[in-house]
Every structure is written in C-alpha cells, then in structure tokens.
Amino acid sequence: RGFLEKAAVKKMAKAIMADPNKADEVYKKWADKGYTLTQMSNFLKSKTAGKYDRVYNGYVIHLD
C-alpha cells in the first residue's frame, strides 16, 4: 500500500510541476487524506536533491 501511495503522490507532484495551477486542488486532496509533512517528505524523496522541494514547500504553506 505504501508503495502505491508513494507512486501516486509522485505522479501528482509531477503534475504540479508541469502545471502549477493544479497545486491547490492536489494539496487539498493530500490534506483530506491526512498526509503529514513527514509522510510527504518520505513520499517525495528523490535521487535528485531538491527535485520536489517546490511541491513540498507549497504543501507546507497549504497546511499552515
């Protein structure tokens, strides 16, 4: 289950990176699912340092 969630989160993160207008909708879905910042950090780990920082930081702001 965790692997599928991670894959889904990364897919949506890539969608945000391609079209930032989708961010609020995606952040709301993640918040509704109760994803914590720790979970998001783990889901968005990448071999490329900083690749998903913008998405993660946007989610931090959304939760605030």
Rank of each mutant, 00 (worst) to 15 (best):
F3R: 13
R1I: 13
Y52H: 02
V26G: 03
N42Y: 13
K33E: 09
L63F: 04
A13W: 03
K11N: 11
F43Q: 03
A18W: 06
M12V: 04
G58T: 01
K14W: 08
K45N: 10
I16K: 00
K22N: 07
S41W: 13
K28Y: 04
A15W: 07
L44D: 02
S41D: 09
H62I: 04
R54L: 13
K51C: 08
V55E: 02
N21T: 14
Y35M: 05
Y56F: 14
A18P: 00
Y56V: 07
G34I: 02
A49L: 11
K14L: 10
Q39D: 13
N42Q: 13
K29W: 10
M12S: 05
K6C: 14
D19N: 09
K11P: 02
T48F: 08
L44G: 01
V55L: 02
Y52W: 09
K22F: 08
R1M: 11
A31I: 04
K29C: 15
S46R: 05
K22V: 13
S46L: 05
D53Y: 05
D32M: 10
K6R: 14
K29Y: 14
Y52V: 02
D24W: 08
Y35G: 02
L63H: 03
K51A: 08
A8Q: 10
Y56R: 02
M17L: 14
G50Q: 05
F43D: 02
L44H: 00
K14C: 12
G50L: 04
V60K: 14
A49M: 11
L63K: 03
K6F: 08
A15N: 06
Y27I: 02
M40Q: 00
I61F: 08
I61A: 15
H62A: 07
K47Y: 05
N57E: 15
K11H: 09
A8T: 13
T38K: 10
K45P: 03
E5D: 09
T36D: 08
D53I: 05
N57C: 15
N42A: 12
M40S: 00
N42P: 01
D24A: 13
K33Y: 11
E5I: 10
M40P: 00
R54D: 15
K28Q: 12
I61P: 01
G2H: 15
A15M: 12
K22L: 14
